[in-house]
């Protein structure tokens, strides 16, 4: 799995959590736990984005006619 896929996965988890907050009837008790989870994910994504480097590979194949 590339670093980018990990970030993407975490982003979709975060999206799910944010969507949970957007529903009409939320349980206040649960909300604190969910918010902590979401904040932790956002921190992790931020950290990963700060450190993740792109891997550049020049293809060896020649494209001459």
């Amino acid at each position: 799995m590339t670093k980018s896929s990990t970030i993407k996965e975490k982003l979709s988890q975060l999206d799910e959590l944010v969507a949970w907050f957007e529903q009409d009837d939320i349980d206040i008790e649960q909300s604190l736990k969910k918010f902590e989870q979401a904040e932790k994910l956002a921190d992790e994504i931020g950290d990963e984005l700060k450190t993740a480097k792109n891997k550049i590979e020049v293809i060896k194949k020649k494209f001459d006619a």
């Binding site: 980018s4 984005l49 450190t51 480097k53 792109n54 590979e57 293809i59 494209f63 001459d64 006619a65």
Partner: peptide
Amino acid sequence: LDERWGGMQIDVAHTQVQGDVAPEQIIRA
């Protein structure tokens, strides 16, 4: 690209980008 986002795999096909041979090389890439 590096400044904006990270963690990507970037595959580069080196070709001519001008002159007679460029179109054919780009098509092959």
